[in-house]
Design a protein around this nucleic acid. Structure first.
Lengths: 247, 247
DNA sequence: TCTGAGTGTGCCACATCGTGGAACACGGTT
DNA sequence: AACCGTGTTCCACGATGTGGCACACTCAGA
């Protein structure tokens, strides 16, 4: 497939400017394009907020538009970088695969994970989405959501994923109350047959839930029924440490 | 001037992806373009490292390419943000315009300034360049540069800017030794007639000079000859505080 | 296993859009 | 006033980007 020449040229100009402000003629010389071509591409980048002219008729520099675009990526990467060590700790202490999810509207998006045992195949969820009510990370978000937002979520039809899926709004509300009390959330084979999972919330300095860490494993060995509370507390503790680190 | 449609389309796609990973069809729907057009633009952005496909035949997300471009901007802005309060302090304590310069090859680039007195017109140097040997910020960089890099700089022809400009490499070397001893650098009307300036270095954690703060004023009132040392120490102290803040 | 749906990919005729040479306006210097 | 070098604008032209369409692939359901 032919590539889009103008996009490559625009990026060449952005790279030239990443070393500092330059005039049209200077950029033209560095990227090997006629001045009128460079001027037109700079005008387009200016409209997108990626560059700005320092003064009328003068040099151009990179502007905040790129930061605005990259900002989501930066914040996201910082979150994942911080989470990594906590996910590793959870794998070490619990002995099952761990992961981190963030909310995207009515779904959890699994952003990263640390595997425990690649000999026994556990599906890699990173990159996947799941409806909030079907997974413990999602329930954790719902449990700390504004009442009106919870109402809005539960007013929409809730699909089941397995015969065990809980889709009754009344029972879900009760469940959310319990999650708020104990601090963690368990889901047993409600999202996928043979899969159990526990999650807890990571807060920001304002008290909003920004992510959830979870551990999941095959139902035949996870969890030991005598350990569900202790495992939940391990998740809560890991999330509290991560919350403090981010604060 | 007609704008470059492809560049605007590429940015529309990047904005769509800033909310999270999306497939070609999803991006197509959000930006209102045919799938083949979106696919081709995504391929171009992929080649630039701005986006990446999460898995073969799957969804796209923003990638580090934007961060790499914006990174220079971020680092630069952090430096200027930190510098601001120190420049304000210098203006308060010295009563002349202050500024910050960073090195670009053989030149100082004046990145920001804080004005003291806009009633008396002092030229705004922000956005300008000056040869290292002509200004105190540049001499500060030279003073802390590797000997071989100083040799390379002094081996090139040195232009004068005023009759007072020092361009004799032997005398410049002597001067650099003195700057290292006292920690600051004075320049009297060597860059511009009627303009005097003093600068000191800001270091990073490795001991490299990353910026220089300076104060400049009109020669008729700045500096008081009895105060040149004390003023230099003020610059050094401000730079030491900034160095600690950045560490 | 087969079928259908929806995805991302690749092809190609077409014409729109991006190109780049040239002229212009402007500011600074001599 | 003349010159130089800058950024800006115009426009003829054809190369490139477009978008419709077919295809390959994957997944879910029967």
């Amino acid at each position: 497939m032919a590539v889009v020449q103008s996009v490559h040229r625009a990026f060449a100009i952005l790279r030239a400017l990443s070393s500092g402000p330059l005039g049209v003629t200077e950029v033209s010389q560095r990227v090997g394009l006629p001045k009128s071509t460079v001027a037109r591409l700079l005008a387009a980048l200016d409209e997108e907020g990626a560059v700005r002219q320092i003064q009328a008729g003068g040099r151009y520099s990179l502007d905040d538009g790129l930061l605005d675009l990259a900002g989501e990526t930066t914040g996201h990467r910082n979150l994942l970088a911080v989470a990594r060590s906590h996910l590793l700790d959870l794998v070490d202490s619990i002995g099952e695969t761990s992961g981190i999810g963030v909310r995207e509207d009515r779904e959890i998006y699994y952003a990263d994970h640390v595997e425990f045992d690649s000999q026994v195949q556990i599906r890699n969820w990173t990159g996947e989405h799941a409806a909030l009510h079907l997974v413990p990370s999602g329930l954790v978000f719902l449990a700390h959501m504004k009442a009106e937002d919870v109402d809005a979520y539960l007013d929409e039809p809730l699909e089941a994923a397995t015969p065990q899926s809980e889709v009754d709004p009344v029972k879900i509300r009760q469940r959310l109350g319990q999650i708020r009390r104990v601090g963690y959330s368990w889901v047993h084979q409600e999202f996928a047959e043979g899969l159990n999972s526990v999650a807890a919330p990571v807060f920001n300095t304002r008290g909003d839930v920004i992510a959830a860490l979870h551990v999941h494993g095959p139902a035949y060995r996870f969890p030991d029924p005598e350990q569900t509370h202790d495992l939940g507390i391990l998740l809560v503790a890991a999330c509290e440490r991560m919350t403090r680190q981010l604060g």
